[in-house]
């Protein structure tokens, strides 16, 4: 029992991201409403961001900012004392790009709503066939 618990707790970040990724995929694949699909896409992005951030963590380490006074004294910096900054950098830009793509997705949703009067996929496909 203890061994199972240890495995569960030591990889808890992966369980969280897998759960979020499945929820996001469920939204994108199965939901018929385009707003819900967009929300699912965002949950999927959150899962990827959580995965990247969590693999940057190190035990007994602090945030990746080197402590310093007013004057920068060049001392030797041990990499083990600071968490991995690289996933943070990649996800920092990814979060802002996610907001920008969300804006474009909402703009397209507004255009679809102006054209068809609905955001339900079934309804739109029916009208699309009728137009053809």
């Amino acid at each position: 029992m203890d061994a199972v618990l240890t495995v569960l707790i030591s990889r808890i970040n992966y369980w969280a991201y897998i759960l979020l990724m499945m929820i996001g995929l469920y939204g994108v694949l199965i939901k018929k409403n385009y707003m819900k699909k967009i929300i699912g896409m965002n949950i999927l992005q959150t899962a990827v961001i959580l995965f990247y951030i969590s693999i940057g963590a190190k035990k007994q380490a602090t945030i990746p900012i080197i402590d310093h006074g007013h004057t920068l004294v060049h001392t030797t910096v041990q990499a083990a004392r600071f968490i991995n900054p690289l996933p943070h950098v990649l996800m920092l830009t990814a979060i802002v790009v996610a907001v920008a793509t969300l804006g474009v997705a909402l703009a397209i949703a507004i255009k679809i709503h102006q054209q068809y009067g609905t955001l339900e996929e079934d309804e739109i496909l029916r009208r699309f066939d009728k137009d053809l």
């Binding site: 707790i9 030591s10 990889r11 808890i12 970040n13 969590s54 693999i55 940057g56 963590a57 190190k58 035990k59 007994q60 380490a61 990499a79 083990a80 968490i83 991995n84 690289l86 996933p87």
Partner: peptide
């Protein structure tokens, strides 16, 4: 690698 592993390949 497990959560918070200092020797993880990413770090």
């Amino acid at each position: 690698p497990i959560w918070g592993d200092p020797q993880s390949p990413a770090g």
